[in-house]
Design a protein around this nucleic acid. Structure first.
Lengths: 111, 111
DNA sequence: ACCGCCTATCGTATATCGACGATTTACAGT
DNA sequence: ACTGTAAATCGTCGATATACGATAGGCGGT
């Protein structure tokens, strides 16, 4: 049921203009927007960007939230594709997926 | 209870970089992201952008949703500031608030 | 003044989010 | 093999989102 879905989203990646107010990519777009539609997740994204990478524990320390809650937000971010986690020794190293972040920026910029 | 809240949000409007992964503006940002975190609302925004302005009835016709549901989404968009509605004769003319849209674009671009 | 159209709001049901503590799983080191 | 740490998952709860039909309000035209 988890399905992580790290599959690269194609929507808008070719740079076309998306002029149609169609259903086109609205779902993928909204999913990405959803990922940053919470203050805690925005903080996490900024944190990851400022440090390039981060283990979960560091994130927990920076936020006034329980570990399990942070883990939930990380899961949402991973499912959106914005964040990816690599097992790096004993811990898990989270980092921003620049490709997806760029896609999000492009989608918003093309609004 | 409606309160439209067209108040200009200051966050990021001066163009500073927002390097801190702080709580700064995370709430305002997430609120804007929230506004487009639903396929139907993205469609509405695109529709409004492609036509410059639009009455509610036209939007309802383009979407597979009940009129009351569309009205709800419009309310959310209005509360976020992204959309504003002006009473134009018998109907209500909705349009994008370019200032807020630009702010959203800036916030995302500065991620 | 009445009627019909357009939009907003109310009330309601269902689904999902957001938060937490408790538990389980994975891995490094002893 | 055992232990301890790190992270994910489970189970639960209240709050909120989403959707709809029904109803209320505003405005033009007859």
């Amino acid at each position: 049921m988890v399905k992580t879905k790290a599959k690269a989203v194609e929507c808008g990646s070719t740079g076309e203009k998306l002029t149609l107010p169609d259903v086109t990519c609205a779902k993928e777009f909204s999913k990405l927007a959803w990922a940053i539609a919470h203050p805690a997740r925005i903080r996490i994204v900024r944190l990851l960007l400022s440090r390039k990478a981060c283990v979960c524990g560091e994130i927990v320390e920076e936020m006034p939230l329980a570990q399990s809650t942070v883990s939930q937000h990380l899961k949402i971010l991973k499912e959106s594709g914005l964040v990816q986690g690599e097992i790096d020794g004993p811990r898990i190293c989270y980092c921003i997926n620049q490709k997806v972040l760029k896609q999000l920026k492009r989608l918003v910029a093309n609004l």
